[in-house]
Nucleic acid binder design. Structure first.
Length: 570
RNA sequence: CGGGGUGUAGCUCAAUUAGCAGAGCGCGCGGUUUGGGACCGCGAGGCAGCCGGGGCAGAACCGGCCAUCCCGACCA
């Protein structure tokens, strides 16, 4: 029978261990494993042990408090989502490989949700609401499934995780904008309470849909997200969608006559530079891609820039792109490494970057093996079907207004907020409310996610030292770690238990290392590893006093029990 | 999905030329210790990822499969 409130370490499931798995490379993964917070089931699916789950719950509690503060209403939807809802919004195609599906015994198909827009919209459309019910915001905490091709980094990128996902329903865009702004402020506040300084960056909506969104990035050298912040701080943006000003090159040069010449060279950009003895930027880069329907798309860009495939997909109006094969390029009458927009007009959709207008008398391939063209000029020698920004920004590039420069950063994406607009409510039949004028109108929506486990990993990445985790007080699994030293002597154990009781009564959550079979050194090392903010030592040497030490400090002080309680209660 | 690894005890890792399956940590028992990862003794724990092949003999060689990690393309 167990009737204790405070947790005895001797009974805790999930003790510390000395070695982390050899394949754990990130500090958060190693430390959460060694301190007994998590264990792996299969790749990308984790057990949260009691200590780990407490930290997880602390994070969720703060998220919940802040969602509730702005009127969010917590609920839950089924984990298995009817697949026909995903077909209704065409996401079975756009999500692609990440969507997991499952059949029940009657062959009815479900999606294992990685997000739940359809479910919430389906619920709301069946509720038949009016403008009087608006606006509202409903959310849940639930396990999400993403069939990630590659899980990695412990909790940083997994296949199964708890996410808080919220969905807002507004009457129109004007009302929505207020909701979105409020949610943005709430997110900043949530992460601040969790100990994370986040940057809100513009990003791509991807398969979620909608027109704009923002990610919350916790800056970290091990983060997988690349983004840019301008030096003046006015622009922060994911690398996928970063805009920049293209500098003019030889724009004043006279146009020279177009010529095609023999060019025995390799197929890289550098081979072109070497052969012609001209700068990289004067070369034209051609990138042949294929969309999900098999349509060929030729991206053309200034040679010193790289094609951004996200931007290119947007410009082409498709979901996914792959590189064209050599056979596909040959079938067009061209040659890999020698592709040119000249003469391909009409055979393939040509998308050109505005950077092509910053150069004159460019050189590049001429659609034949060892054939190059020189003095190529846009509009005169070739035209593009679509002129659009398809370039990848780079550190040091000018912002669009030309007043600042972009600086590259890396971060862990811990949350994001999406404008969805009418994306779902127009695709899903009947997702309307009755407005004041008696007419049915679609809801204007947004959605908002926070990955709890990833946030936990981001916190550990930021708050640790050589000895272990240093939890911020708000998310620590316990407030105080009582360590008894010399347990068998002079009633130390009894005294420690008494202190634990008093702390609990004062509302302080206690983990009590009551083991009398390990040395003091082991207990201290474990306390450092687990990282609870306050360590309270009880020992015979201290008499009636206890020793208090903060995990994030090397200073100790001796206090009476009353002083201890009043200090920790704050 | 491309490239590169790795699969031996719960974890970290050994094992000469193929010749009885090993160590440290951890776990259990006994004892000595007790303010920064103490020590002694004893013990438990293994279908060597799976399947097949050649061989007197395989953890090791060959083939296939599976799992898993790292680097690239995608996401909370």
């Amino acid at each position: 029978m167990i009737d204790r409130k405070y947790m005895r370490y001797s009974k805790l499931v999930g003790k510390t261990v000395r070695n982390a798995p050899a394949d754990a490379i990130f500090d958060s993964h190693k430390l959460l494993y060694k301190s007994g917070f998590i264990r792996e089931s299969t790749a990308g699916r984790y057990y949260f042990l009691p200590l780990g789950w407490r930290a997880h719950q602390k994070i969720a509690k703060i998220v919940r408090e802040e969602m509730d503060r702005i009127g969010g209403q917590e609920m839950i939807v089924p984990v298995l989502q009817p697949l026909h809802l995903w077909q209704e919004t065409n996401r079975t195609a756009s999500v692609g490989f990440e969507l997991m599906t499952i059949k029940d015994g009657r062959e009815f198909q479900f999606a294992l949700g990685g997000t739940a827009e359809e479910m919430f919209v389906d619920l709301v459309r069946n509720l038949k609401l009016s403008y009087r019910d608006l606006p509202f915001n409903i959310y849940q905490f639930s396990t999400k499934f993403r069939d990630e091709i590659r899980a990695r980094g412990g909790l940083l990128r997994v296949r199964e995780f708890v996410m808080k996902d919220a969905y807002s329903f507004d009457r129109d865009e004007t009302e929505f904008k207020k909701t979105y702004r409020q949610m943005a402020e709430t997110y900043t506040k949530i992460f601040k309470r969790l100990g994370l300084e986040t940057l809100k960056v513009e990003a791509d909506n991807g398969y979620i849909g909608g027109e704009y969104c923002h990610e919350y990035q916790a800056e970290s050298p091990i983060g997988e997200s690349r983004f840019f912040v301008s030096e003046d701080g006015k622009y922060s943006v994911h690398a996928d969608v970063a805009k920049f000003k293209r500098d003019d090159k030889n724009i004043g040069e006279q146009l020279k006559p177009y010529r095609e010449i023999k060019a025995v060279r390799g197929t890289t950009m550098q081979d072109g530079v070497k052969l012609h003895g001209l700068p990289l930027w004067q070369q034209i880069k051609d990138f042949m891609a294929v969309d999900e329907n098999g349509n060929l798309i030729l991206a053309v860009i200034r040679g010193d820039l790289d094609v951004n495939e996200i931007k290119l997909a947007h410009a082409a109006g498709c979901h996914h792109l792959r590189h064209a094969t050599a056979e596909e390029i040959h079938a067009l009458g061209s040659e890999p490494g020698f592709i040119s927009p000249v003469g391909l007009k009409g055979k393939v959709k040509i998308i050109g970057d505005p950077s092509l207008r910053t150069i004159r008398n460019a050189y590049g391939g001429a659609n034949g093996l060892h054939r190059d063209a020189v003095n190529m000029n846009i509009d005169r020698d070739y035209t593009v079907d679509i002129e659009a920004d398809i370039a990848m920004a780079q550190s040091g590039f000018s912002t669009e207004d030309g007043k600042s420069k972009l600086v590259e950063k890396r971060g862990i994406e811990v949350g994001n907020i999406f404008q969805l607009g009418y994306h779902y409510t127009k695709l899903m039949k009947g997702a309307n409310f009755i407005d004041e004028d008696g007419k049915e109108k679609p809801y204007y929506m947004g959605c908002y996610g926070i990955g709890i486990g990833r946030t936990m990993a981001a916190i550990v990445e930021k708050y640790h030292d050589k000895k272990g985790i240093v939890w911020p007080e708000a998310v620590a699994p316990y407030d105080a770690h009582v360590v008894e030293v010399g347990s068998k002597e002079y009633g130390v154990k009894k005294k420690a238990e008494g202190i634990c009781k008093q702390l609990e009564q004062a509302g302080i959550e206690v983990l009590w290392d009551d083991r009398d079979y390990v040395s003091a050194g082991v207990k201290f090392a474990d306390a450092d590893l687990i990282g609870i903010p306050w360590r309270v030592v009880v020992s015979e040497r201290l008499g009636d006093k206890v020793e208090l030490k903060a995990r994030n400090s090397s200073l100790t002080e001796e206090l009476t029990v009353d002083q201890l309680i009043s200090k920790l209660k704050v």
